[in-house]
Design a protein around this nucleic acid. Sequence first.
DNA 1: CGGGAGGTTGAGCATGTTCAAAGGATGTGG
DNA 2: CCACATCCTTTGAACATGCTCAACCTCCCG
Lengths: 255, 255
Amino acid sequence: MSPVRQATYNPLIRKLEHYVPLSADDRRVLDELGETEEHYRANQDIVVEGQVPRSVFVLLSGLACRYRILRDGRRQIMTFLLPGDLCDLHMFLLRVMDHSIGTITDVTLAAIPTVSVLEMAVRHPRVSVALWWSSMQQEAILRERIVALGRRDAVGRVAYILCELVWRQQAIGLSNGSSVTLPLTQNELADTLGLTAVHINRVLQILRRDRLLTLEHRRLELLDIDKLADIAGFNKDYLHLGPAPPEIIRHLDRR
Amino acid sequence: MSPVRQATYNPLIRKLEHYVPLSADDRRVLDELGETEEHYRANQDIVVEGQVPRSVFVLLSGLACRYRILRDGRRQIMTFLLPGDLCDLHMFLLRVMDHSIGTITDVTLAAIPTVSVLEMAVRHPRVSVALWWSSMQQEAILRERIVALGRRDAVGRVAYILCELVWRQQAIGLSNGSSVTLPLTQNELADTLGLTAVHINRVLQILRRDRLLTLEHRRLELLDIDKLADIAGFNKDYLHLGPAPPEIIRHLDRR
DNA sequence: CGGGAGGTTGAGCATGTTCAAAGGATGTGG
DNA sequence: CCACATCCTTTGAACATGCTCAACCTCCCG
């Protein structure tokens, strides 16, 4: 595989380029980062609460999540990690993980040494901006979840999370239209949305009855995504999936 | 007031220095940033959803919050902004605000031109790291809120938010022990925790009855903060209020 | 003294939970 | 390739937490 093709198929590059145009040199450096690939099976922990994070990871394929287990054994999933997502730019500075990261499906990831990240942030301003942008987008996703958990009922929450997942998968080119694979169990949806699996089941039945979606054998199709977004009171723009604004990029070019 | 004293009393510098030691030069630059001070009264909007953010702000005094109004008029407060907090490093790249920022009390803030932030990030690596750190801490706070809203009952949520506010105020030197001013109405607490004001009222009565806190005339005293943290299933370390780990700082010194 | 915002109280109600049991799907070893 | 175990989904009924609505109280501030 030629370097150019490699760059195209590297999920991190694909994602960052979606935000900020990168130079050939930027791409080369990014491509050299992920030398050590690691593989995990479904339902395994990548990093566990209490551990000292070893390095920064990029998810190459599969689905993972950040979560915390409470004392009574219940779980709260905080956010999902899709291909191209960094786990954990946020944590490489932290002494101790305050939550765990686990896989949902089989997962491939690339480990990046902490030092390389620091170097890159200094030497490659465009990459640095792209990482900032990526971090901001993560924060936007967290804020949306807060709104969903705080002020939406069960139907609204389910509609919201399905829209989020489909839009995020679309943004990284993992979906054909409104149909995606949804590897989540109803239990995992419940742990994400602050509900019980039983009630998730009942909500899904409502949404199926109203011909808003079909879901079987891990295949989800949103039949009317606009209606679902409306039910969720949710807006695609809230996720900031698009590129950085031009004035930032102009500023980078001047240097 | 001498430059040195100014630096000491600049909330942003005080906050960033808490994370990463800054050079005299770093401090000087930071101090020059906040030339234009702005004042807002209580219950005013600083930035409104849909606006294009003009610049980055630093909160110098008072209490503000990020919030969104839903279509039905209900409100969700996403997070609080305390002195030293940036509003909005996250947003200076974004085209359009996806939420509003409003004051709770009277507020003073310093506006920083976007360009200065970009320059500073490049020329002053320690400041840059401190800003990263600050951003990560914000994210940690958002994640905690997700856990609270998703998996804690009303008593747990109230206990959690009071701990968060007291610990954050302690971290920036705004509290005498466990006693702080709590300018929030029960309505605002409700909009933060995804509950109703009526129910907040009932929960506060329970906590008062159990001699866990006193709250009158905007004065909050946590009588047993460990017990409250325990009820909330909450841990001070989750907020990452302390300094950055030494290896990062060593790395900065090598350059 | 009057008005308004915020706090307090009560009763009925609704959304989502709990618990328990049964019905599919999936996959693994014999 | 079947048998069995396991995980996931589905269903029902009783229950509980927190909501709604409406009234009243209290404090502050003009």
